[in-house]
Design a protein around this nucleic acid. Sequence first.
DNA 1: TTGAAAGCGCTAACAT
DNA 2: ATGTTAGCGCTTTCAA
Lengths: 334, 334
Amino acid sequence: MSKYSISDIAEICGVSKSTVSRVINNKPDGVSEKTKNRVLKVIDELNYRPSLLARSVATKHSELIGLIIPDISNLFYPEIIHGVSTYLAKHGYSMILAHSGYNQETEKELLLSMVDKRVDGVIICSGISNEEFLKEYKKYEIPLASIGRTYDNYLSDLSISGDNVKGAKLATRKLLSTGNTKIALLSGHSEVAGTKQRIEGYKQALNDAGIEFDKNLVFHGDYTIESGTKMAEELIKSKTEFTAVFGGSDLIAIGAIKALNRAKISIPDEVEVMGFDNIYLSEVFEPPLSTISKPHYDMAVEISRKLLCLIQGKTDLIPHFIIEPQLIVRNTTK
Amino acid sequence: MSKYSISDIAEICGVSKSTVSRVINNKPDGVSEKTKNRVLKVIDELNYRPSLLARSVATKHSELIGLIIPDISNLFYPEIIHGVSTYLAKHGYSMILAHSGYNQETEKELLLSMVDKRVDGVIICSGISNEEFLKEYKKYEIPLASIGRTYDNYLSDLSISGDNVKGAKLATRKLLSTGNTKIALLSGHSEVAGTKQRIEGYKQALNDAGIEFDKNLVFHGDYTIESGTKMAEELIKSKTEFTAVFGGSDLIAIGAIKALNRAKISIPDEVEVMGFDNIYLSEVFEPPLSTISKPHYDMAVEISRKLLCLIQGKTDLIPHFIIEPQLIVRNTTK
DNA sequence: TTGAAAGCGCTAACAT
DNA sequence: ATGTTAGCGCTTTCAA
């Protein structure tokens, strides 16, 4: 801990705490140049650093923002973290990062721990949230923003997300357009809202094309490479006919590619593969993955911007924003 | 903010603040069951949450740990974050995450901002630190741990890192063992200490094998895929003969693979490729990359554990720890 | 078992 | 331009 307090500095300089407070906060009404310099000099010599904790209890704001993510090993999230952290740092805020592990109970506790820490706002990436609890959470009056999921009843004050239904439709349609009728769907975490929406989009596209939905082509796992591989292996083993694979996320699609490679099934000639998310890895992977794009980094920056606006009292923001998904054709589709 | 303070709760319950404080802190000396239950009930009904900020200024510890990383888009760091965050959460601490962007000045400011926030300790991943400043930093008396770099003069209280020289030697020797004599080195961020050590290991291995060091085989960039691609392209364009590529990191090696692929150079038949770090991506990439392993996640957990021990007053720790590097042979070497 | 009082390090309203 | 005072929400020592 810093060895000196504002009182120490005041005493040593022979001024009052208020004066010291004024100089460390660069108050406009001001202090005479002379005393200011004297105080500054002592501060510098003693390496005094004002306690932001103490300041926060006095001012009732902490310049702290909580970010809650499910699991950083989903490469989707580092991009979010990067965006949030970069924007916040630029504006004098710090970020407390925590992992919910896709666990509703953990998420609840984290949300509460954020109020204990008196953060000025929280950003949550989830889709698994307990809506009941989110409703309760409002009484703590701490601005809540969410990425990746627009809560149906606007349980968060702010949100930004991709249109999952539309995105999945786009992906499926692309696959249909090159003649595929047997499109396997390798799906993620079924509790997550976005997952259901993607399944819905897939179904709609099939329906629009007059193709019957086939249960045997749908597999459920989670949003990891390993799970993608496992689901694809099951698919292959099941002997169900298929000519395309739509992964619920890029990670799943990449896992599937690994399984297809091992089974000597060539991509995209024998089987086309489509991802979802357009994470950085999808671009650098070999072969580069066709996918549906949502600009995560930009979404993270944008939601951070709005959150700070909200905290600073702006109320004329568009609170809920849905990003138009975009088809990215790379090498795993024809 | 929480609408109620400890005084409010005390007043409503008709007890003193001390009593409320005792129950929220579960003090052993205790409060009678009856009053305890009464207080608990009011707390619950009013959704009172004690302010950790206020508590921290009173107790002089914050249960906050700062983690400073250069750049999260180096996939090395999410693994570190995961390890640190997981361990800390399990032990009641929270993590403030910040990015230095490989910038010495930024790092300095972040370090100071951590003392302003009165964190109980900081973990820094860098190698670019200003040693002069690190020395000064000691006077703030906040425990400092570093990952990935053992500061020469023990400028941090705790450290854990891989042996870069030995690791690079191991990698180079493996490449030499299959008859390669023209081994290109694609190196990262030259300001980073680990970079120099890896170059040193490479040189030593060549020297041990009686092979002359060839400047034309060494390229300098940074620790990204893009940089790896660029360096490999330059290498290819330079017409310098080579039969193996040693990347200063997995990301660089992967970038190089992309360039080699494009140039229709087959791996590992025509050119062998070796990475460094063994990040998760190196395992899932196609082809899976041969590399040198350092167990990041475990290192992160271990340093977190030691840091909390140190904070809690244990002094009999082994402060500086070097992890033995391990050769991982996958598909990019013979 | 409980309370009173002082203190943690800061800000802010009001005086001067 | 500067100081006085009270207050932020908590803990902790001491006394009852």
